[in-house]
Design a binder for these strands. Structure first.
Lengths: 225, 225
DNA sequence: CTGGCTGTTTTTGTATTCATAATTCATTTT
DNA sequence: AAAATGAATTATGAATACAAAAACAGCCAG
């Protein structure tokens, strides 16, 4: 895995800005004031600007020449595109996981699944999401592909702020759980092809839900103030 | 598409360093001397270091804290992982292209295919590669997914230096061409599912060829001098 | 009152400077 | 002679300084 430079100032700054964006402390489309952030972090502009460059190449912020950095806005279009790509990557992770996961890993994932199901039964949405995420991460880890993992998490970061802010529609929730049931079956049976195709479709449903709730920016590409 | 800042010094520097790496002017594992490159580009260290940060987050170089930047070395493992991920992305591009490509685009891709085939018949490897790449790019473009395109090209850049440096083994070449024949069929028939699965496998063969030729770094993670 | 122009302020992009960590090379010691 | 120590050199990381571009405010003309 590519080491994130947490020990350097610019690495630290990048991590903190990422968090601020995901926590909603920096709003999409708003200008990121260099000076203010420098003072807030207690660092000079050099490392801060380096951090912004990194975040820009991660797609978290956009850099307008001579006009500073803005938090990247998530349009419906971008979200759809991103979900599709993440779906493809998850599909690969499933295929590979079936090939490379140890029995212990499969058992762990099964355990996570049952815990998730418990929260589903009780309609406990937050814990459900937690375990859901853990399952997908565990499959990713079992795929033994660091490039895949990095690529996926980079995309995941971009949409983090909307990912779990959706209210669950029962119909979608049932579908997602049905997918998960099938996923576990495939994993146990080591049916990589089928697990792959389930995972490739799995996220597609989510998009509809996200689009329905008001979390994304439907307005045209006018620069927000 | 995320605009690459070609007008700024750091953007220019990043582009030139990328090219230098792909052209073999900067060797994998070798240290990138900041001062020397600054003089070569006629810029100060600030924009150069910003460029290096960007390249690091693209996976082109690795940054060792207090020890400068090195050109990322491609191990067999990494190449395999990257090809797998690119395969998944190409698979998605195929699926989407079948859905969204205009008839004109399909016709263009077909034309490219026949030009490529002509070079295959004459065993003209360089032009063959050119058209091959153009076909994959055209499918990517027809997929109407900018996130996909960006993600793919980022990975593509990383392995650019080995991608077309392989000598073609006839057996592999024939297989690749057979894939391409099938791909065109699927595209014309708008059979996204099948095109997807062909493309997901298409790159896998390439790996074997690359591994066979000596272009990748099989040695353990000792720092090259 | 509105729209555009000009001078000022602010902000961004780049260069330079400073501090610190790493490397080199000579010297010393065994 | 080889290894180890330590001073000198060099390179990196970060802060500051400076130049240029954009944003802003006030003014004037219509």
């Amino acid at each position: 895995m590519i080491k994130i430079q947490q020990n350097t100032l610019y690495g630290e700054a990048a991590a903190r800005i990422r968090d601020m964006i995901n926590e909603g402390k920096l709003l999409p489309g708003t200008r990121i004031p260099e000076k203010q952030l420098c003072e807030h972090f207690g660092i000079s502009r050099t490392p801060l600007r380096e951090a912004l460059k990194v975040l820009a190449s991660e797609g978290m912020v956009e850099l307008l020449p001579n006009r500073g950095a803005r938090v990247m806005r998530l349009t419906r279009q971008m979200l759809e595109e991103t979900y599709n790509v993440m779906g493809a990557l998850e599909g690969l992770s499933g295929e590979l996981a079936c090939r490379y996961a140890t029995e212990a890993e499969v058992a762990d994932i099964q355990a996570l699944h049952y815990q998730m199901m418990a929260h589903y039964q009780r309609r406990e949405i937050r814990p459900y999401f937690e375990f859901n995420q853990q399952i997908h991460d565990a499959i990713m880890a079992a795929s033994r592909n660091e490039v895949l993992k990095e690529t996926y998490s980079s995309l995941s970061y971009r949409i983090q702020r909307v990912r779990y802010s959706t209210t669950m529609i029962d119909e979608y929730w049932d579908q997602a759980v049905a997918d998960h049931e099938a996923m576990i079956e495939c994993l146990v049976a080591r049916d990589g092809e089928r697990l792959g195709s389930i995972l490739r479709e799995h996220l597609r449903h989510k998009l509809v839900v996200a689009a329905a709730s008001g979390v994304i920016d439907e307005s045209p590409a006018t620069s927000a103030t």
